[in-house]
C-alpha cells in the first residue's frame, strides 16, 4: 500500500506544476515592504495599501458581517504592516503569508473582544510574529509537493477532500477513515477512487 501511495503522489507532483494558478507578485510586495522598512516610504506603503486593503476588507466583511469592524481590521492590519515592516524577513517566508498572519491575528483579537469581552490580545501568543520559519527536520516530507497538491485538492467535492486529506496527509488507513468519518469502508474506498480519478483529470495525468 505504502509503495502505491508514494508512486501515486509522485505522479501527482510530476504534473502539478503546470496547473498552478498565476502566482502573486511577491517581488513587488517585498520591494514595497523593504522601502517602508528602510526609508518609511509613503508611496510604497500606498501601493501596499491598495493591493491588500480591498482584499482584507472583503475577507473581514464575510468573517465579521459588520462594516465598522471590517474597516477596523483593515486599519489595524495596515497599521501593523507600517509599524513592523522592518520585522519582515524574506528568508523566512512569503510577504503574503506575513501580512495574512497579521490580518488573522487582528481579526482573532477583535472577535474575542466581541465574544468574550476580553482585551487580552492573545493572538500574538498563539501565533507569534517572530517565529515563522520552518523547521527542517523531516527529510521525507516534501512541503512544496504538499502545498501544490493542496491547491488542487481544494477543487474536489467536500466529501472527497476529506478522504484524500485523511489518506494522504494524515496517513490514516481506509479502516481508520471509515471509523473516523462514521462511514462504511466501502464508501470510503469508492470516494477515494472517485477522488483519484478526478484528481488525475485536474492534474492532467494520462493513463499510464
Amino acid at each position: 500500500m505504502q509503495v502505491v501511495q508514494s508512486s501515486l503522489s509522485n505522479k501527482i507532483t510530476g504534473h502539478i506544476i503546470s496547473s498552478m494558478h498565476s502566482p502573486i507578485e511577491n517581488t513587488d510586495i517585498c520591494l514595497w515592504l523593504n522601502a517602508v522598512a528602510t526609508s518609511r516610504d509613503k508611496s510604497a506603503f500606498t501601493q501596499l495599501f491598495h493591493f491588500f486593503a480591498p482584499k482584507i476588507l472583503n475577507i473581514s466583511k464575510s468573517k465579521l458581517s459588520n462594516k465598522t469592524l471590517a474597516n477596523e481590521v483593515v486599519q489595524e492590519t495596515m497599521s501593523n504592516v507600517w509599524k513592523k515592516a522592518h520585522l519582515f524577513d524574506e528568508s523566512k517566508g512569503a510577504p503574503t503569508t506575513w501580512i495574512y498572519t497579521i490580518m488573522r491575528n487582528v481579526t482573532f483579537d477583535i472577535l474575542r473582544k466581541l465574544q468574550s469581552n476580553k482585551e487580552d490580545n492573545l493572538s500574538d501568543d498563539i501565533w507569534p510574529m517572530v517565529e515563522m520559519a520552518e523547521v527542517d527536520d523531516e527529510p521525507f516530507s516534501d512541503h512544496l509537493e504538499q502545498k501544490q497538491i493542496l491547491s488542487v485538492i481544494d477543487k474536489l467535492p467536500q466529501n472527497q477532500q476529506e478522504v484524500i486529506k485523511g489518506f494522504y496527509f494524515m496517513e490514516m488507513s481506509q479502516e481508520q477513515l471509515a471509523q473516523h468519518l462514521d462511514l462504511p469502508v466501502g464508501t470510503v474506498k469508492s470516494r477515494l477512487r472517485l477522488a483519484l480519478i478526478k484528481l488525475r483529470g485536474l492534474l492532467g495525468v494520462n493513463n499510464d
Binding site: I24, K55, A94, T96, T97, Y100, M103, R104, E134, L150
Partner: peptide, 12 residues
C-alpha cells in the same frame, strides 16, 4: 506553516 502559506495565497 504550509497551511498558512496556502491560506495566504488563497486569500490574496
Amino acid at each position: 506553516i504550509e497551511l498558512t502559506k496556502h491560506a495566504a495565497e488563497t486569500s490574496f
